[in-house]
């Protein structure tokens, strides 16, 4: 643990939708600057856990602290990015990036710097419909970073783009978060993505009662996409998911 203490301390004793329990005794502690991946199959509650940490879901039993403060509502210290870009189609790219503030005028230098950073310099006046899926996700990333959040929560952010675009966006994410020292919690169902991005992987099971398993990823950065070590780690992740061996 880092000397300043964890930036996220989540204890979710229980969360259910109706009669179905999605999370039970789920604990997550994240140190500053750490990149943690929540890995698991659909329905394992990983997105729910992320929404609870984001302050978007308050209907659960437990406690979440972000930067030592108890989470009661979404905080400006937390940036969120979803699987879909969720750009507002009637706003220009620049206004989407500056969505946190009403009106883009005073924020223009910051917006331009962010667009430059995500490789979309000069696209500020475009409407979202002119963008490709990968470009839209870049805008969504810039928007998530707009308030300079200490923490970035990503819910399968690259799940809906093609493999090539995904690889580029993954590199972009690592570059940008490393530069800003942003702590990242990333929900994914892609073992390759988890090994590539995360310092630590929390493997969640489809059964709420089963405890999650934490697997560190002690690989140096920048990481290779191929090679023996990533493959070994991926096998460990698949094993933890219970799908390493096919019969």
């Amino acid at each position: 643990m880092s000397p300043v203490g964890p930036v996220i301390e989540a204890t979710i004793r229980g969360k259910s939708y109706g009669a179905r329990a999605v999370l039970e005794n789920f604990k997550l502690t994240v140190a500053p600057g750490e990149i943690v991946a929540l890995l698991g199959p659909s329905g394992c509650g990983k997105s729910t856990a992320l929404r609870i940490v984001a302050g978007l879901d308050r209907d659960f039993d437990g406690e979440v602290r972000v930067l030592g403060q108890r989470v009661r509502e979404p905080s400006s210290a937390v940036g969120v990015m979803f699987q879909e870009p969720r750009l507002l189609p009637w706003l220009s790219v620049a206004r989407n990036v500056a969505f946190a503030v009403d009106g883009v005028e005073g924020a223009m230098p910051r917006v331009e710097a962010l667009l430059e950073e995500v490789g979309l310099a000069g696209w500020g006046n475009a409407l979202p419909r002119a963008l490709s899926g990968g470009m839209e996700q870049r805008v969504a990333l810039a928007r998530a970073l707009f308030r300079e959040p200490a923490i970035l929560l990503l819910d399968e952010p690259f799940g809906a783009v093609d493999a090539l675009t995904r690889a580029r966006l993954q590199s972009l994410l690592l570059r940008v978060t490393a530069r800003h020292g942003t702590t990242v919690v990333l929900v994914t169902h892609d073992t390759r993505e988890a090994v590539l991005l995360a310092d630590r992987v929390v493997v969640m099971s489809a059964e709420a009662a089963r405890r999650s398993v934490e697997i560190p990823v002690p690989l140096p950065r920048p990481r290779e996409r191929l090679g023996a070590e990533p493959t070994v780690l991926e096998t460990r992740l698949l094993d933890a998911l219970g799908i390493a061996h096919t019969d």
Binding site: P74, R86, F99, A100
Partner: peptide
């Protein structure tokens, strides 16, 4: 709407 909520 959820996005807007996430932005407070």
């Amino acid at each position: 709407v959820e996005l807007a909520q996430a932005f407070g």
